[in-house]
């Protein structure tokens, strides 16, 4: 596993070096657009998230991942219960996403 990780890291470093300069430098020439959430017209949960967006994008990013994970697994779990209550057997099906 150690050797594997070592090889992986070496390869990734090489890829970074190989990424053509225009791709990595491209973003610097043109100034990216900046959005500000208009918290003057918001309240409640919207206001909470909009404030986080304006002040700390990193925190907002972590929150997004947590919300997605919680919501995704929560809904998946709930749907499992509902579908088994209805009585339709889904377990034999293959689902490819």
């Amino acid at each position: 596993m150690k050797a594997f990780l070592y090889r992986l890291l070496t390869s990734i470093t090489m890829v970074y070096l190989l990424i053509p300069a225009p791709v990595s430098a491209g973003g610097k020439k043109a100034k990216p657009l900046v959005h500000v959430a208009d918290t003057r017209v918001l309240s409640g949960t919207y206001l909470y998230f909009a404030n986080m967006y304006n002040e700390n994008l990193l925190l907002f990013g972590i929150w997004t991942v947590v919300v997605l994970t919680a919501l995704g697994s929560g809904i998946g779990f709930l749907m499992d219960i509902i579908m088994s209550k209805i009585g339709l057997d889904l377990r034999s099906r293959e689902l490819r996403e």
Partner: peptide, 14 residues
């Protein structure tokens, strides 16, 4: 159930 409770705990902790 374990996975779900872990995820929920992390959410609340954050």
């Amino acid at each position: 159930t374990n996975l779900l409770s872990t995820v929920l705990t992390i959410t609340i902790a954050v």
